[in-house]
């Protein structure tokens, strides 16, 4: 039977999505602040184009992992984004998955070196 809600398919998150979730885990941000923070988190390796950023934001909004709200202070950017409880859960799951993979990989390297 068809579910009308789009369900996450359980695949690993793409890098832009992961970085957006990480950035919003710290605090809510608007579009430009997200671009800058993602560049900083990735130590300058990832510079998202606005097309990529907003494509990912659209999917995250649809999945209910982030939400958009209007900032009270009327600086240049009015619309900002924040993580929802579901988004925080997904980020936690993804980081746990990566931690487990890293542990397994490091263990293999140690065996090879020994």
């Amino acid at each position: 039977m068809r579910q009308v809600v789009t369900q996450p398919d359980g695949r690993p998150l793409s890098e832009p999505v992961l970085l957006i979730l990480m950035s919003l885990a710290g605090q809510p941000r608007h579009g430009y602040a997200l671009l800058k923070d993602i560049e900083s988190i990735s130590q300058g390796r990832v510079r998202l184009s606005t097309g990529t950023l907003y494509g990912a934001l659209a999917r995250l909004l649809e999945d209910g992992w982030i939400e958009r709200f209007e900032q009270e202070d009327t600086s240049r950017e009015k619309q900002a984004y924040r993580l929802t409880a579901a988004g925080r859960r997904q980020l936690q799951m993804e980081l746990d998955r990566m931690k487990q993979l890293t542990r397994a990989g490091m263990a293999r390297l140690r065996v090879r070196e020994a």
Binding site: G31, L35, T50, Y54
Partner: peptide, 29 residues
């Protein structure tokens, strides 16, 4: 929102860096 963010990011760049950035943005769009 998108053109505003594009403009903010473009304001940080000059000359060739700006041209490369704009071309990348247009292709990304």
């Amino acid at each position: 929102e998108m053109p505003r963010v594009f403009e903010q990011a473009a304001a940080e760049r000059r000359g060739m860096a700006l041209a490369r950035f704009a071309a990348g943005e247009w292709m990304g769009l």
